[in-house]
């Protein structure tokens, strides 16, 4: 009888531990996605400001920095989100670099806006809310 109670307690403990781990991992992933996307968005705002004021050299330096930052973040994001989302961001980042290099203001700003949307969408997608559940 004592052995059975011990086994039942072990099962309960295992389930509680597993659920706690899954929930904590989910929360940590959400925090990580929020922080990293904020960091990327900050760089994008800086680039947007510089493009609006035609500071192309600074914009180019910033986009190169952003690409470096993206390389590091991309590795971790690949394990957490669908790879299509990552491919979309990478593709837009490449296009944006070329437009900045060519000093094409219209295309640069439009791609910057799309990139912003894609990055903002990532933590939104993982957020626990009614819209995401249904």
């Amino acid at each position: 009888m004592k052995r059975r109670t011990k086994s039942n307690l072990k099962t309960c403990f295992f389930i509680i531990l597993l659920f706690s781990l899954i929930i904590s991992a989910g929360i940590l992933v959400n925090i990580f996605l929020n922080n990293t996307s904020k960091s990327l968005l900050n760089s994008i705002y800086v680039i947007q400001f510089n493009i609006e004021y035609n500071n192309w050299d600074i914009s180019y330096i910033e986009i190169v920095k952003l690409k470096e930052e993206w390389k590091t973040i991309e590795r971790v994001w690949s394990a957490l989100i669908h790879h299509d989302e990552i491919d979309k961001i990478s593709e837009n980042l490449e296009l944006l670099t070329e437009y900045i290099k060519e000093k094409d203001k219209t295309n640069s700003l439009s791609h910057l806006s799309v990139l912003k949307k894609y990055i903002e969408h990532i933590p939104e997608m993982d957020k626990l809310c009614i819209e995401n559940i249904f």
Binding site: I15, L18, I22, A25, A79, L80, I81, H82, H83
Partner: peptide, 16 residues
């Protein structure tokens, strides 16, 4: 394209 974790987490949840 689907992260492995997207398969592992539901399996773990269902098992629990």
């Amino acid at each position: 394209a689907i992260p492995l974790i997207h398969g592992i987490i539901p399996i773990l949840t269902l098992m629990s």
